[in-house]
Amino acid sequence: MVEIRDPVMSTADPSIPRPPAVASSLQALLATVVATVVSVFRGVAFWATIPLPLVIAGTLATDIVATDPLLVGALVALNVVCVALGHNYSPNA
């Protein structure tokens, strides 16, 4: 009896080209840029939460709230947004 063996087949599909190394390095560069921009925005939001309550208190003390209540409301909303965005900021990272 003659035994017929199947030839070893490759699992690589030659019809799908490999992405060039340039594409992967561009993706890495883009990921680094995005991470840097996010870190900068978090840092600005974190540090903005420190003076904003003082500015809001100043508007309340000088009666700006009576003449322009939308400004005070916008400052309070900005402070809440800065707290939310800057919450995970780490200055050492």
Score class of each variant (00 low, 15 high):
33 V>M: 01
15 S>G: 03
14 P>S: 06
64 I>C: 02
38 V>C: 06
57 A>G: 05
87 H>N: 08
22 V>A: 15
57 A>P: 01
6 D>K: 15
69 P>T: 09
27 Q>P: 00
16 I>Q: 05
38 V>A: 12
74 A>V: 03
83 V>A: 15
18 R>I: 14
87 H>E: 05
18 R>D: 14
43 G>L: 06
31 A>P: 00
81 V>K: 02
24 S>D: 07
83 V>N: 10
23 A>Y: 12
46 F>G: 03
47 W>V: 01
4 I>L: 15
50 I>Q: 10
65 V>F: 08
27 Q>L: 11
92 N>E: 11
23 A>R: 07
13 D>A: 00
56 I>W: 00
17 P>Q: 08
2 V>H: 10
40 V>G: 01
68 D>M: 09
41 F>W: 12
49 T>H: 06
91 P>I: 08
26 L>H: 00
13 D>W: 00
88 N>E: 08
79 N>R: 08
23 A>T: 15
38 V>D: 11
71 L>S: 05
46 F>L: 01
45 A>T: 05
41 F>K: 09
25 S>D: 02
36 T>W: 02
29 L>A: 14
15 S>D: 07
42 R>H: 08
35 A>F: 00
18 R>L: 14
2 V>M: 10
49 T>Y: 03
2 V>G: 13
17 P>W: 04
81 V>E: 08
86 G>C: 10
77 A>M: 10
83 V>W: 11
66 A>I: 03
84 A>F: 11
76 V>A: 13
53 P>C: 04
91 P>E: 02
11 T>G: 12
26 L>V: 09
89 Y>I: 02
77 A>L: 15
37 V>I: 13
72 V>C: 08
51 P>I: 04
66 A>C: 00
89 Y>Q: 03
73 G>A: 13
92 N>S: 13
80 V>A: 15
19 P>D: 14
68 D>Y: 06
28 A>G: 06
53 P>M: 01
75 L>D: 06
27 Q>T: 04
67 T>L: 07
5 R>K: 15
34 V>Q: 11
32 T>Q: 09
89 Y>P: 03
66 A>T: 05
57 A>K: 01
66 A>M: 04
10 S>Q: 01
21 A>W: 07
21 A>H: 09
59 T>F: 05
2 V>T: 15
75 L>S: 04
48 A>F: 13
47 W>R: 13
86 G>I: 06
72 V>F: 04
67 T>R: 14
84 A>C: 08
44 V>T: 07
54 L>S: 10
49 T>A: 15
38 V>Q: 11
15 S>Q: 04
43 G>P: 02
27 Q>C: 06
65 V>E: 09
49 T>R: 09
9 M>K: 14
10 S>K: 01
49 T>S: 15
76 V>S: 06
93 A>I: 10
53 P>Q: 06
54 L>G: 14
26 L>M: 14
